[in-house]
Write a protein that binds this DNA or RNA. Structure first.
Length: 586
DNA sequence: GTTCAAGGCCAC
DNA sequence: GTGGCCTTGAAC
């Protein structure tokens, strides 16, 4: 159980991949403890042999939505202070500290160039360098290049879930390419003009990644030394794989940042979303930066009414409720016009807003949210004829959940808590916050209710806010309407989100006092804010608070629905989403 | 001048 | 089609 709220030690240990998880020498390839979901696990060998390539053919429905990138969910990583859960999705790469796992000790860390050797996240072969966004082997690099350059379309005659490892990577190019995308290889890094040489925009990202890995290695080396000192005498350390405290060290790959659309800006040349939110960046520069990009995800609804977007052919995101009256050039990098909403004339003057709320609002990263949504949808529908929309929704929800965890982990009050307490709070509030987030995206960022994917399928974005239950739409709209009546703004939203998260009544919290204090501070700030900034709305604070049980009720029904779908085998397994659902029912 | 991630080449 | 090695050229 990934999020075993009752047994943290289990939580922290079970989701670590074995050191040699991706050993290319292993025909089986899959780690013994890899939580590969049954429906996505390796099919029998006979299936591999039935996989074939078919150039020029269209894909059949792609059901392999829950991918290996969900297989290495790692709560210890998520909640670890200082860890940088960038994407919220572990892209599946396993880092292997050089040397046999069975003999590794802290002092034995190799002195290789970067201090680490790595395995290709696609097939487990030896990595030859950074290729198309991440460290891969030479053959997967070549495979990815050929596939994209030649616009190859493959089919899988098995279950589209073929296991890819070094020995079997050639058997099913369909699944291999899917895995390439899932682990984060970037289509846009393949040059359309086939120009040779030079560097691309990912260079600085690669550099950062190297530095980060080195830093992580050093940190882990120190931690291992400490742990070694504490455990050797206790007989806890063993050279047996799987029993060593070091043997299961699994370092998350941080280079793959699906949230940051590399299509609209270079990871390094663009300011961080936080910088944008902080107002440290001239947003007009951002507009300029993306001004010559053709939109790919478009609002196609009627003016003034958020309705739908279309994902276009060249993989870029932009959108606005007013897109039909606004130049795409002004929309590209700020898809949902967050800055306008936050800083627009409708917002109260910042002098009236408490520093606490100002900080809250400035830390909101809606650009990241939309980028991650776009990237996920792009990757999941690239080259696909048809995808399972429910599974796609689960994936998006899962990603949103990761983002939420990341937000919480870095938030005031919450970040000071112990992991156990953090998990309990999140376990209790995650679905409410998902619903609340969707209301926010819809109300304040003009998120439409529908989107047309690359492949022409309509994706029901509203279902994200309904947690997959269409019949909740009326309830959802009712809540939204009530909030609109209250002139619910971004400050209200973020305060309410904190109030949902910092619930002192959650059972079993060890540091209840701290949670209570945080809750009360936010509550007080929100009360003052509503009274100061919205004096014309009588009792706004209480009216808003009265809506929280309604949100909770909606979220609870969504949870039930998802849980039942999961139990009936209709929902993906091995996702943070499902782990949360399970954890609550323990 | 060096680095290194692109694309290209070609034996298999 | 694959994958190991080579060439290229912008960034440093």
């Amino acid at each position: 159980m990934l999020l075993d709220m009752e047994n943290h030690s289990t939580l922290l240990s079970l989701n670590m991949s074995p050191f040699n998880a991706n050993s290319g020498d292993s025909p089986a390839g899959a780690p013994a403890s890899s939580p590969m979901p049954p429906q996505y696990g390796s099919p029998p060998i006979s299936h591999y042999s039935s996989c074939q390539q078919s150039m020029g053919m269209q894909h059949h429905q792609q059901s392999m939505m829950m991918s290996q990138n969900m297989n290495n969910l790692d709560a210890s990583y998520i909640f670890s202070p200082g860890a940088n859960a960038i994407s919220g999705v572990d892209m599946g790469a396993s880092y292997q500290i050089s040397g046999p796992a069975t003999s590794l000790t802290a002092g034995d860390l190799p002195d290789t160039k970067d201090g680490i050797e790595e395995l290709c996240p696609v097939c487990g072969d030896k990595v030859s360098g950074y290729h198309y966004g991440l460290l891969t082997c030479e053959s997967c690099k070549g495979f990815f290049k050929r596939t994209v350059q030649n616009k190859k379309v493959y089919t899988c005659v098995a279950e589209r879930s073929c296991h890819i490892d070094k020995t079997q990577r050639k058997r099913c190019p369909f699944c291999r390419f899917q895995k390439c995308l899932e682990v984060g290889m970037k289509l846009e890094a393949v040059r359309a003009d086939r120009m040779r040489g030079g560097r691309n925009k990912f260079g600085p990202m690669y550099k950062r990644d190297r530095a980060r890995k080195l830093q992580m290695m050093r940190q882990r080396q120190l931690a291992a030394q400490t742990l070694r000192g504490n455990t050797l005498g206790d007989g806890m350390y063993s050279n047996q794989p799987g029993t060593s405290p070091f043997a299961n060290i699994h370092i998350k790959q941080e280079i793959q940042i699906p949230q940051v659309s590399s299509l609209t800006s270079s990871p390094d040349s663009s300011p961080s979303p936080i910088a944008v939110a902080l107002g440290q960046v001239n947003t007009s520069a951002l507009v300029q930066q993306g001004s010559n990009q053709q939109p790919a995800l478009q609002i196609v609804g009627v003016p003034g009414a958020p309705s739908s977007m279309v994902m276009g052919p060249d993989n870029k995101l932009w959108g606005s409720a007013n897109s039909t009256t606004t130049s795409p050039h002004s929309l590209s990098p700020k898809a949902f016009q967050f800055d306008t909403v936050v800083q627009g004339s409708s917002a109260p003057p910042s002098s009236k807003v408490s520093p606490l709320i100002r900080d809250f609002v400035q830390a909101i990263d809606d650009r990241e949210w939309q980028n991650s949504l776009y990237t996920l949808l792009q990757n999941q529908t690239y080259n696909q004829c048809e995808v399972d929309l429910f599974e796609l929704m689960c994936k998006v929800l899962d990603q949103n959940l990761f983002s939420q965890v990341d937000w919480a982990r870095n938030s005031i009050f919450f970040k000071d808590l112990k992991v156990d307490d953090q998990m309990k709070l999140l376990q209790h509030s995650w679905s409410d916050m998902l619903v609340l987030d969707h209301i926010h995206q819809r109300m304040h960022n003009n998120l439409p209710d529908e989107m047309t994917l690359h492949n022409g399928q309509k994706f029901d974005l509203l279902s994200l806010g309904l947690l997959g239950v269409p019949s909740l739409a009326d309830h959802f709209n009712d809540i939204t309407a009530k909030l609109q009546e209250l002139k619910y703004d971004v400050s209200d939203y973020i305060c309410v989100k904190f109030l949902l998260l910092l619930n002192p009544d959650v059972r079993g919290i060890t540091n209840k006092k701290h949670v209570q204090e945080g809750y009360e501070q936010v509550q007080q700030a929100l009360l003052e804010y509503t009274v100061t900034c919205y004096p014309q709305i009588q009792d706004k604070f209480n009216k808003m608070m009265q809506l929280l049980p309604e949100i909770h009720s909606l979220a609870a029904r969504g949870e039930e629905h998802l849980y039942h779908k999961h139990c009936s085998g209709s929902a993906p397994t091995q996702t943070l989403l499902m782990e949360m659902l399970h954890a609550k029912r323990k």
